[in-house]
Design a protein around this nucleic acid. Structure first.
Lengths: 201, 201
DNA sequence: TATAACACTGAACTTTTATTCAGTATTATA
DNA sequence: TATAATACTGAATAAAAGTTCAGTGTTATA
């Protein structure tokens, strides 16, 4: 039970790699199984042998990306002592990940596309919830540290995610430095706002 | 030259209305010409008589939506004296428009989909530029009024647009009041930030 | 070594899609 | 009224898509 498992792993990776690149370049719907067949050199049947279907293949890539992101972030996180530092760090991390990571565009398309199996829809829901939880924890830490003054943690988690989501779309048309700058500025605004300090609160 | 123009206007509207509803419900790609045929009762050929193709039909709806938005906003704008008021007003306007307006999801899908004719791509680029210009003007007014302290108007226009873009996605899963609240909170943050007023600037 | 489990092929199947076009009916024009 | 322009039909086209499956060779198991 060795050469077979190894073979399976290898071709599964080959398919995943090719699919990732294609989804990134052309989007989810526009990438056909035939495209992946051509790119990998293996047959259509083989793809369906290793993955349930096109949806399943894409979901696999999303999960892979998610865990990868978590891992690299955990490595970085310790470098940032305060919650504010963490926010800027996360912004930078996202900016770079999204620039380097090819899947964001296709992911958006997939997320917003209605033709998904119910269980897939469910899984995506969980992912989004995961992002929001992540934000919530980050914000809560800032509150506990007396860095932030706010009570509506859940609301702000959505605002933060919205900001990152929207920037993600814009940053597609940006160069690396431009994108990093935009993410930094977004965090400046998120932390300090743009109004003159005549606070009415 | 009357009954014919009238007829054309009527069926063009009928097709546009049906298409809008379908695109909203199912997304751009998932809506087929056949769907529109069934919904309108007119033939496929007729749709291609009035619109260049599927892309052209969708673009027509986008343009229509854009001009409609501009018009209703211009009516509202005068109600808000300061730039800050205008920002909150715009947020509310967007929140309601996006809730009522069915096309946002399909628009996202369309925007991010690579298979567009070059001239369509160009037109979309112009639209995005229009949004950013709109933001820029609003922010500039706030600076002139001494409401905002900032110099990077272009950067902030992108941040503001990103925020609205991201909220748009989240608000799809929200009720009316919830969405309005989220948009308001987003503006609070955009204006005042979340950090304690120990400003380092 | 015989049998079972596995990795894989690739053509065939089924749907679905956007788009076209020869032809028809209605309305305007001269 | 004759002719031209216009609004429309609907079947045909043609390409593309996701998915399946009978069959082939290879590796593990007993």
């Amino acid at each position: 039970m060795n050469k077979k498992k190894q073979q399976t792993e290898q071709t599964k990776k080959k398919i995943a790699d090719a699919a990732r690149a294609l989804f990134a370049q052309k989007g989810y719907k526009a990438t056909s199984i035939e495209d992946i067949v051509k790119a990998t050199g293996c047959s259509a049947g083989n793809i369906y042998y290793h993955f349930k279907n096109k949806e399943g293949l894409f979901l696999y890539l999303l999960e892979e990306w998610n865990t990868e992101w978590d891992k690299t972030w955990l490595d970085k996180e310790t470098l940032y002592p305060t919650a504010i530092d963490k926010l800027y760090g996360m912004a930078e991390h996202l900016a770079l990940d999204q620039l380097n990571h090819p899947l964001t565009k296709a992911a958006d398309e997939f997320f917003n596309n209605s033709e998904k199996a119910p269980d897939v829809e469910e899984r995506i829901h969980e992912m989004v919830k995961g992002y929001l939880d992540f934000n919530r924890q980050l914000l809560q830490r800032g509150i506990d540290n007396h860095e932030f003054e706010t009570t509506n943690v859940t609301g702000l988690a959505i605002i933060l995610d919205s900001l990152m989501l929207g920037l993600n779309q814009h940053s597609r048309r940006m160069e690396r430095e431009e994108a990093l700058e935009a993410y930094r500025l977004a965090m400046d605004v998120f932390l300090h706002g743009i109004a003159k300090p005549t606070r009415t609160r």
